[in-house]
Amino acid sequence: MKKSYLVYLFIFLFFFVSCKDNSETLDENVVFEEEKELLDVAYGDDAQQKYDIYLPSNRSASKTKVIVLVHGGAWIGGDKADMKGVYDVLKITSSEYALVNINYRLATFNLQPFPMQIYDIKSVVEDLKSKSREYGILNEYAFVGVSAGAHLSMLYSYKDDTEKRVKAVVDVVGPTDFLHSSYTDSPNIETQQAALGLQLVIGKFIENDPNYFESISPRYAVTASSPPTIMFYGGVDVLAPFQQGEVLKQTLDSFGVTNEYYFYPNAEHDLGDENIADALAKSTTFIHTHLK
């Protein structure tokens, strides 16, 4: 009797597992014909931990990859609304991809940005992964970041994407090396103030703890397996000096990582409308090439 029971139990478990596997295979290939948009999706308990997601028509978890947008604001400000223009353009020019426009917790003098904001990006990716079949998306990504958002995008993609799910990074005026002389020895007052402001928010100072500032500088996290990166910098930018892009390019080149660097000699930190349009066009081509 006991032996017979075990045989039946084995047969039941065999068919249960088989059916489960078949179901999951089918789920991955389900095609969602209608486009869908969800706003202010919570990925954590904090009010700032929300994202908007655009899901294109004819998507599925076996083919539809994701572009993640990360706003700037010196790690203490900004909002996903700042990326709405980029979001709207990509809905048209990159309609085969899902778009995710994220908010993350903003730093204060009592709340340090790192690793908190990197943790938030990880949480977004985990949330998307857990909802892959519900949304009809594949867990492969391109990150598009501006200023502090570019810094966070690079730092996550080079250092914390252990599964190598990020296939492309767009860096628009992002800081890459806080130890570089363009920050530490800049004669420009605004650059000095920006560098000091970050140190005050972090509660650490470069001269006292250079190793920490190396650990949060994307340049030092580059390896031969880092994702292809496209960079945009302005020649008169005092918040993210163009040398930040140059040293990142040198590092990417030294590791043989595919990259493109674009320099707008007369542009400030916002690059200007004409240059932004050019950067967005180049970024779209770059994403299509590496996220295909």
Rank of each mutant, 00 (worst) to 15 (best):
P115N: 09
P115S: 06
I118D: 03
D120C: 05
D120H: 02
I121L: 15
K122M: 09
S123T: 11
V124E: 03
V124S: 02
V125A: 04
V125C: 05
E126F: 02
L128I: 03
L128T: 02
K129D: 13
S132D: 07
S132A: 12
R133G: 00
R133P: 00
R133F: 02
Y135I: 00
G136F: 00
G136Q: 10
L138M: 12
L138I: 00
N139Q: 12
N139K: 08
E140S: 12
E140L: 04
Y141E: 08
Y141G: 07
A142L: 04
V144S: 00
G145P: 13
V146Q: 10
S147N: 08
S147R: 08
A148F: 06
A148P: 09
G149K: 11
G149S: 13
A150T: 09
S153N: 13
S153G: 14
M154I: 06
L155A: 01
L155Y: 10
Y156S: 05
Y156G: 05
S157A: 15
Y158V: 04
K159R: 15
K159T: 04
D160V: 00
D160T: 03
D160K: 13
E163H: 05
K164M: 05
K164R: 15
V166A: 00
K167D: 01
A168W: 03
A168L: 10
V169D: 00
V170N: 04
D171L: 06
D171I: 07
V172N: 10
V172T: 13
V173D: 01
V173M: 11
G174K: 09
G174W: 04
T176M: 03
D177P: 02
D177M: 02
F178S: 01
L179Y: 06
H180P: 10
H180D: 15
S181M: 01
S186G: 09
P187E: 09
N188H: 07
N188Q: 08
I189G: 07
I189C: 07
I189T: 13
E190A: 14
E190C: 08
Q193I: 11
A195P: 01
L196G: 11
G197W: 06
G197I: 02
G197D: 12
L198W: 04
Q199S: 12
L200M: 13
V201C: 12
V201Q: 15
I202M: 11
I202T: 10
G203R: 00
K204C: 04
K204T: 06
K204W: 03
F205M: 09
I206D: 07
I206W: 10
E207D: 14
E207P: 06
D209C: 08
D209E: 14
D209M: 05
D209G: 11
P210R: 01
P210N: 01
Y212C: 08
E214C: 03
E214Q: 15
